[in-house]
């Protein structure tokens, strides 16, 4: 059984050590906020005992510290940082390192061994800091409330197969065998006849309210200017009027099946070989769209057809920037 109170204490030791010794200027870690057991990514500097005291690691660390790095890239540029990551966060970090979005030498990586995540909303608010949070092979327990992993709100964790990553520091030991990357919904969807499948996806696209939370929370969705925004983000005072006038509008603001599909499918295409299946987009979606049902279409192709494992090593070539002699698409191409 894992006791996350003692693992959190160990994590605090590492974080405060790094800051004390001046190995890093700042650390991005999860802390407990107002809405326990929910946690939040927090930037901690030397001397911020108030924040350090709240540093925590538990299955409720469901957000991504890598998204935090992405969002604060400009403000953190050139600073030496410590960052606490779960297995999926480290995968995402590797993707960004592969793409030279971040520099490895700027980072000290503190890995927490993750057995899976749980949705805080499904658990009662623990009254008092002493309420223990534990987990074992079967599920998560907060105080008296226990839920099986299967009922804890994170389906992606059940098929997470990533382990034994090599961060600079490690906290915790796995308490549960990692799952197999088999995604049931794909088989189910692919068994549908095309008309029905189309209906299924059309209904899914239709309910999107275009809040873009899925894009914004994604740790690897890191373009400065997204193809979907009508060219408004990267404008400088020197941008020529003709450039502004000609900015392509791939998906207009209309909320309709077709426009929403352009958004969600474009995102899926851009995530090919980059999506680490952390599942945060799906969990963040305020209208509950099963986004993995779209993303896994490309995730599956990447894994099965191209045998590419996303974000395993920062030294791997990025999926879309690499060529393998075994590329099945090349077979028998008469050139």
């Amino acid at each position: 059984m894992r006791d996350y109170r003692s693992e959190s204490a160990r994590l605090r030791e590492i974080v405060s050590g790094l800051l004390e010794r001046g190995e890093v200027e700042l650390v991005v870690a999860w802390t407990e906020g107002e809405d326990r057991p929910r946690t939040r990514e927090t930037l901690i500097g030397k001397g911020r005992e108030d924040l350090l005291r709240k540093v925590v690691w538990s299955p409720f660390c469901t957000t991504s510290t890598v998204t935090f790095l992405k969002k604060n890239k400009a403000a953190l540029a050139g600073k030496r940082l410590g960052v606490v990551v779960k297995d999926c966060d480290l995968q995402a970090l590797n993707v960004l390192l592969q793409e030279h979005f971040l520099k490895r030498e700027d980072l000290v990586i503190i890995g927490v061994r993750c057995d899976g995540l749980a949705e805080a909303d499904l658990f009662p608010r623990p009254e008092g800091a002493e309420v223990p949070i534990t987990s074992d092979g079967g599920g998560v327990t907060v105080g008296k409330q226990r839920r099986a992993w299967e009922d804890s709100g994170f389906t992606t964790c059940l098929t997470c197969s990533y382990e034994d990553m090599k961060p600079d520091h490690v906290v915790g030991e796995y308490g549960r065998k990692k799952g197999k990357p088999e995604w049931g919904h794909l088989a189910r969807l692919q068994a549908l006849e095309p008309g029905k499948r189309r209906e299924h996806y059309a209904a899914l696209f239709e309910s999107c309210i275009r809040c873009y939370a899925c894009r914004e929370v994604c740790p690897v969705c890191a373009c400065v200017e997204c193809a979907i925004d009508p060219g408004e983000r990267a404008i400088t005072p020197r941008t020529a009027p003709s450039v502004k006038a000609c900015a392509p509008v791939w998906a207009c603001r209309e909320r309709s099946v077709s426009e929403n599909a352009v958004y969600l499918l474009t995102r899926t295409m851009h995530m090919a070989g980059r999506c680490v299946r952390c599942g945060w987009c799906e969990r963040a979606c305020p209208v509950g769209l099963p986004l993995m049902e779209i993303l896994d279409l490309s995730n599956d192709a990447v894994r099965r057809v191209y045998r590419y494992e996303v974000g395993r090593d920062p030294a791997d070539p990025p999926f879309l920037a690499s060529y393998a002699e075994t590329d099945p698409d090349d077979k028998g191409a008469g050139h």
Binding site: R40, L43, C211, A213, R215, E216, V217
Partner: peptide, 13 residues
């Protein structure tokens, strides 16, 4: 706001 991702959730909902 340091961890805000600038999505539309808080306002759309």
């Amino acid at each position: 706001s340091e961890r805000c991702v600038s999505c539309g959730i808080c306002t759309f909902l």
